[in-house]
Design a protein around this nucleic acid. Structure first.
Lengths: 169, 169
DNA sequence: GTGGAATACGAAAACAGTTTTCAAAATCGA
DNA sequence: TCGATTTTGAAAACTGTTTTCGTATTCCAC
């Protein structure tokens, strides 16, 4: 089971998403702007579960004049378009995730190094459906998060150091 | 499977918890106060997933001079004591849940009427453990939330009305 | 292309939930 | 009861997010 999604950026996939967003914007009668293009181009080239601040930092490298408001607004549009999902892991801030090839997945969050792993298991999905059925409940969506720690302490510590370095730099 | 926990308040259980909290306070060298007593007595006699505002409203009936700050502070102590758990269901506010007889459970949240159902299934727990094991990950805790809708539309609509009434009253 | 209505931008203010501050009040061991 | 320590409540501060408002940009009709 691949716990971590592919780290490589698939440029053609990014282009596809940019096109899909452009179409969404047009369909809604909204306008294409330099800032929105910068923001989505940046976002779709980032990995994993991106916070607004992380995204803004990257965006500012391309255009320092872009501010929080526009990033927030563009992220809302991305969510509305269905290309991106908003997630909250209880640290109080929203994180955004571009839909990867894997349609749906759950998360394991290491409380040591902060890494967020993704996984998917059909038996788990099926079991949830069954339980909902038994309770006369219809599931629209769900969220499952396993909080804990990597057993590979060495790799975990290394990730932790790397992230600490990033935060300083 | 009982989807809703017992609605009855077990007074002896409440007393037990009050005693446990008193012991925690003492052990930490803190002081017993009228306000804290009021707050925990109120909390442990409420059902389900209580927001700070809901709790404060109840508390004010016993002592209108108690404010947000004290409620927040007391809830933090309750969490620290291990008698209460904090949960967040994505609507931006924290909810607090006294540990019930059921040690652990997951949630189904109806997006129509807002009702939060509890459930527990050992196979689900076991499967999660197995998946974590396969990924060299150790689970400390987890959270599973099924968002959807009650299939019993009548009961659902009734709950919705009742809650709307409460909000006004 | 140009004009102009509609939309978007950025900075700053507003907002909601939560936390902290501070001076006055309450607790509790000596 | 005294007095050091903790707690309280009101208000201010904080955090992440949303809205406001005046200016700038987009883009369709011409």
């Amino acid at each position: 089971m691949p716990v971590k999604p592919n780290k490589q950026i698939d440029e053609s996939l990014v282009k596809e998403k940019e096109a899909a967003f452009a179409e969404f914007i047009q369909r809604k009668g909204l306008k294409t702007t330099r800032q929105r293009n910068t923001i989505i181009a940046t976002f779709f080239r980032m990995h994993g579960h991106v916070s607004v601040e992380e995204l803004l930092n990257e965006v500012k490298k391309a255009n320092p004049r872009i501010g929080y408001a526009t990033v927030y607004r563009t992220l809302h549009l991305l969510v509305e378009s269905g290309l991106v999902e908003e997630r909250r892991f209880g640290d109080g801030l929203a994180r955004y995730e571009g839909h990867s090839d894997v349609e749906h997945h759950d998360h394991m969050i290491c409380l040591e190094c902060g890494e967020i792993f993704e996984f998917y298991n059909p038996r788990l999905e099926a079991l949830q459906e069954k339980l909902a059925e038994e309770n006369d409940f219809q599931i629209y969506r769900h969220r499952l998060e396993l909080y804990g720690a990597c057993k590979d302490k060495e790799a975990c510590a290394q990730r932790k150091r790397r992230k600490a370095d990033q935060a300083v730099g």
